[in-house]
Design a protein around this nucleic acid. Structure first.
Lengths: 218, 218
DNA sequence: CACGGAAATTGACGCTTTGTCACCGGTCTG
DNA sequence: CAGACCGGTGACAAAGCGTCAATTTCCGTG
């Protein structure tokens, strides 16, 4: 039986040419895709448009991604990967419901504002139509939020409410309010966070309480 | 100058053959599209797939719709057109905030549950990706909700809060909670409505209040 | 009833996009 | 330095797109 050889993790600078161009090409494609999506909107963009915005051959594209959806997903996941730990951290260090909620919203809205390019351009589509797409990484973020809520309930910080619905409500408000926030002439993340936080701070108190925690539905 | 001749509005049953097949064809296409979208998901569906699910020729399709987006829009708009008046009515006849909010949510969740086929199938897409699309008719519904909120504020039923954000929050919660509701083994619209209503009933009280009404942002 | 023309349907056509794969040049390993 | 092999290349077949000249269907009129 052949011994399994661990690939040697070479220091950054000493990567082989092969590895370098692989990273390079991937970034080239993602960069081009960001430009094209922003220009044409997701719906109107074709794989060929992305390839044309690149010095690469069509075959090369398919070595890295198998469709425009996958490129799109990668772009979204990059954002999700940057924001997710921050949100989680914000919530675990929260000493009160208020900190939990307001920390989540403030972090999210600030991120959205800073990442505005991605957040908006990506949603732009032909005419008045808008698309919203949840990648696995984003869905994992939702899942994490729900777990954090359940943990907060277990610690007695939150009353025993339906964590699944509460998660959904938080997500819905976060995304929808973020969208409106970005449309205003002056983007005021504090005001948006204050609004959303106040809504939930007042609202959670009156939520129907469960005898036992709700099992995950999917 | 030639006299303008008003087209004679004939009684339903006496429509000319031309008019009848026009209505017929349109419905044939929409029906086929519903099936195909449900089967393949919106993203994977091609105009040709829809045409193939129909006895018509490709050219005919383009006499009625100019793309799959437009078909999709028409399907969505049909739903929106059915639910919008009901929601509006529910809100204008509301004598209190509680009636306003709970009436809106109950009506919406019940509709979504009855219209589940459209609501779910339409969102299904390749793999874990989901799309959400707001048609002009749906956006008009949002607008109407905001106007109803503003009118409620004017009547003193609601405190002078940011109607734009409140509308966004209501919409976000409605859609996101609806989605979770449908995933559960037993779809309980009352429970979902109770949850969402309680959230807002408690939450609205504490919302930041405005000196003067917020002007529309877009 | 039959005829002329308006209106709508048809499907083949030219063009674009899609995804693949045989080829080949540069890169790595021994 | 040689040989293996990884991965970029672009031509290609298959499929989708939207159009339009030809054709059929319908309607109003004499």
């Amino acid at each position: 039986m052949p011994e399994y050889i661990e690939p040697i993790p070479r220091p950054e600078a000493m990567l082989g040419k092969r590895e370098q161009t692989k990273i390079q090409n991937r970034e080239t494609i993602l960069e081009a895709a960001r430009r094209v999506f922003a220009e044409l909107g997701y719906g109107a963009t074709t794989v060929r448009d992305i390839i044309r915005a690149t010095p690469l051959a069509s075959g090369t594209f398919y070595n890295y991604f198998k469709s425009k959806e996958e490129v799109f997903q990668a772009i979204q996941d990059e954002s999700a990967l940057r924001i997710r730990p921050r949100l989680h951290e914000e919530r675990v260090k929260a000493q009160s419901v208020e900190e939990f909620i307001s920390g989540t919203f403030r972090t999210f809205f600030e991120f959205v504002a800073s990442d505005e390019f991605n957040f908006r351009a990506i949603r732009r589509n032909t005419d008045t139509l808008r698309v919203r797409m949840d990648t696995p990484e984003i869905i994992a973020g939702f899942q994490e939020l729900r777990e954090d809520l359940e943990s907060a309930i277990a610690r007695g910080m939150l009353p025993p409410v339906d964590a699944d619905y509460l998660m959904a409500a938080l997500v819905g408000v976060a995304f929808e309010v973020a969208e409106r926030m970005l449309r205003r002439e002056v983007v005021d993340t504090d005001a948006a966070a204050a609004f959303a936080t106040a809504l939930f701070m007042g609202g959670i108190r009156g939520l129907p309480q469960l005898a036992e925690p709700k099992p995950p539905a999917s």
